[in-house]
Design a protein around this nucleic acid. Sequence first.
DNA 1: GTTCGCTCTTGATCTGGGTCAAAGTTTCCT
DNA 2: AGGAAACTTTGACCCAGATCAAGAGCGAAC
Lengths: 250, 250
Amino acid sequence: MNEINLTSAQVPTGCQNCAIRHQAVCSRCEPDELVRLEEIKYYRTVEAGQTVVWTGDRMEFVASVVTGIASLTQTMEDGRTQMVGLLLPGDFIGRPGRESAAYDVVATTNLVLCCFRRKPFENMILQTPHVAQRLLEMTLDELDAAREWMLVLGRKTAREKIASLLAIVARRNAALTLQGTEQELQFDLPLTREAMADYLGLTLETVSRQISALRRDEVIALEGKRHVIVPDYRRLLNEAGDDSDGGMVI
Amino acid sequence: MNEINLTSAQVPTGCQNCAIRHQAVCSRCEPDELVRLEEIKYYRTVEAGQTVVWTGDRMEFVASVVTGIASLTQTMEDGRTQMVGLLLPGDFIGRPGRESAAYDVVATTNLVLCCFRRKPFENMILQTPHVAQRLLEMTLDELDAAREWMLVLGRKTAREKIASLLAIVARRNAALTLQGTEQELQFDLPLTREAMADYLGLTLETVSRQISALRRDEVIALEGKRHVIVPDYRRLLNEAGDDSDGGMVI
DNA sequence: GTTCGCTCTTGATCTGGGTCAAAGTTTCCT
DNA sequence: AGGAAACTTTGACCCAGATCAAGAGCGAAC
């Protein structure tokens, strides 16, 4: 994992101020907070497939994903694994106030992380309520996403699970590229079939079969194995059993 | 839902100061925070089976569970439901900063809630970093619990799911009654078979079958339908596929 | 180009847990 | 006490998705 320097031009979407959530400009920061965070902020790259943190690792830093995708996974003794979170740009890695990591964090694609050394970061949030407030909001969003996902895991069929995942990635992707959700959506699926299976509580064979089925039924089209075209987002939501456009944050 | 008055003698286990988490004394509060919270605090009772908040409800208050058990559930259009959280004494209901509820909150047993009117509560946490800090910690704990539960939902067998649930309730119960985990544990299971099924992503028939199987194999014993005796907590953990005593907070 | 890794797809078969059905308990109401 | 309603258990059967197995693409290395 390499420490790097990015010019501000290379970090175009983030709040140049607090940088906690890169994808959105944070309207909450005070000018003096900028200075504090700039001092302890640095960038790192991680290659696809590398583990950023292992369960139980002493966490030296917390970080915000700038580009790329990472996943949080839990593993049972016998090797069964379950992905418990998908970290997209703007999402936060690490838990202030906890010394060691509770999950494996694995880079799914090449990553750029905006890191903060842990101790100074914790001191900072103790002193700057607005940042702590923002962190609380983000955590609550993650909790909502996790609970949404519990419904997917516990009650949806394999086909609905796949459709739900595609909808989430499509949505997040659309949010990033500022497209609406009405027209055709396209995106690269940054996960292997196995990673999708780990996320969805399925086997990779089932994932493959269901993706083939969705393609056969023209809910989606594929270019190569990874590039997905969604001609009708509402149809996809419907397949996900998630008619109410609303919910499903991740 | 009735507003009531409790004497401090009737609220024995809570932090008399901030009361955010009733089960543990909060070491973080400043004396002046006590006053602010006392002003906006009141108690309510809810009968078993009653819904405390509906999805989308305008939330008038946030609350801490004093006694009893409540559940957070999500429902799909076709009626499939998934419980996404179990609220035991000390847990928190409601999301500061959000006007409306994201889930149904249903009283599983009779409840006593320590409520705070929402707006004053939000103002208060904006001004008192320590309370916000505590709220962040609690939210992070909940997130951990939710993610732990995702592993249960996604990867465990029916028998392991049941054992996991029993282990959680046993653990929380032991924590409350200050027993160790080495000796025999006993507790009342405060959930119907159907509620357990909703939590575990199973059907009530499967829940019943697996409980019978665990009893047949002498992992647990039952007195009546609800009172559970766990002769060997480690064995139960083992059945849950969760050998490492550590994790599994809820 | 060929070969070695992968990842992905598809087929055949098996099984854990769902579904449907019926009977047994407990609780609570009159 | 008697009876209804709700909860629980158990049985029989079935199916969605797991498992096992065999190829098919496809990129990287030589």
